[in-house]
Amino acid sequence: MYKAILFDLDNTLLDYTSSELDAMRRAIDHHRLPELSGFEWETFRAVFAPINWTYWSERVERQIHISQVLQYSFRDTLIQMGFDPSLSDPLASTYWKLFCSTCHVMEGAQNVLVSLHGHYPLGIISNGIGEAQRARLKTGGMDHYFDHLFISDEVGLWKPDRAIFDSAVRAFGVDHSEVLFVGDSLQDDYRGAASSGIDFCYYNSEGLTAGEAYTPKFAIQSLSELALLLNRSSF
């Protein structure tokens, strides 16, 4: 019988992709980039994405703050597209403010939290940035559902490190076998939960093939399935 449910946040409960695109387009419009000769939104996105991913993935090792990740990403993108890189700082600042106040929710997320809240203690384990994650949850009216939030830049631990999962289990005062973790990433979520001895529910909204190396306890394609699983099971 599970006594606590933990969730990943981005692309599990909150739609990171939609939030990013929404904030990005509004920031670009605010700074009037579409008025520049030769500017194309699709080209900007295609150039920005791999640059931003590189800076983001290296941020811990290189000790780069999120503000620098964004500044460098916008700077390099503008340079590559042949535009004035001095726009990068104000563009990054505007984007971050907009992103932190933008909350697109994954389908079924609100309903599943309502159904579980009060029946299970709920928590978050996220590799995101605390300022953004807390603000987005508040914007979406979802922050009150959670007893504990474990956000990597606040606790100094990153999934799939089992230590962040162990910390969450200790906070709830339960055994590892009494916790279910729900997430969309086999690399970060499954590996971290498995190494900590926590059952993992793979939120596989796109119906991807997991591969033989991954054996989640459960797999769901919609969040509504989670409440059904918990309601009918005597794990």
Rank of each mutant, 00 (worst) to 15 (best):
M1Q: 10
I5G: 02
I5D: 02
D8H: 12
N11C: 05
L14T: 04
D15G: 11
Y16S: 04
S18F: 00
S19I: 10
S19R: 07
E20S: 05
D22P: 01
A23Q: 04
M24T: 07
D29N: 11
D29Q: 13
R32M: 06
L33D: 07
P34T: 10
G38V: 08
F39E: 07
F39C: 06
E40V: 11
E40P: 02
E40N: 12
W41K: 03
T43D: 08
T43S: 13
F44Y: 13
R45V: 15
F48S: 01
A49P: 00
P50D: 10
T54K: 14
W56S: 14
W56F: 15
S57W: 00
E58S: 15
R59D: 08
V60H: 03
E61F: 06
R62D: 11
H65A: 14
S67Y: 10
S67A: 12
V69P: 07
V69I: 15
Y72W: 14
T77E: 10
T77F: 10
T77Q: 07
I79R: 13
F83G: 05
S86Q: 10
L87N: 01
S88K: 02
S88A: 15
L91H: 10
T94Y: 02
W96R: 15
K97W: 00
K97E: 13
K97V: 03
L98I: 05
C103Q: 05
H104D: 00
H104M: 00
H104I: 00
H104C: 02
M106H: 01
E107G: 01
G108T: 11
Q110P: 08
S115A: 15
L116E: 08
H119V: 09
G123N: 09
I125T: 05
S126G: 07
S126L: 09
N127Y: 03
G128V: 08
I129P: 00
G130W: 01
E131C: 04
A135Q: 13
K138F: 01
G140L: 06
Y145E: 02
Y145Q: 02
F146G: 10
D147Y: 01
L149S: 12
F150L: 14
P160V: 11
A163N: 11
I164Y: 08
F165A: 09
D166W: 02
D166F: 05
V169D: 06
A171G: 14
V174W: 04
H176L: 00
E178M: 02
V179Y: 03
F181W: 05
V182R: 04
L186R: 11
D188Q: 09
D189W: 10
R191M: 13
R191N: 15
A194Q: 13
A194I: 01
A194Y: 05
A194G: 00
G197M: 10
G197L: 05
I198M: 04
C201P: 06
N204F: 11
N204L: 10
G207P: 12
T209H: 09
A210G: 05
G211A: 07
G211R: 01
E212R: 09
P216I: 04
F218N: 00
I220S: 06
S222A: 12
S224C: 02
E225F: 00
L226K: 02
L226F: 04
L226A: 03
A227E: 14
L228V: 14
L228C: 07
N231H: 14
S233I: 04
S233R: 11
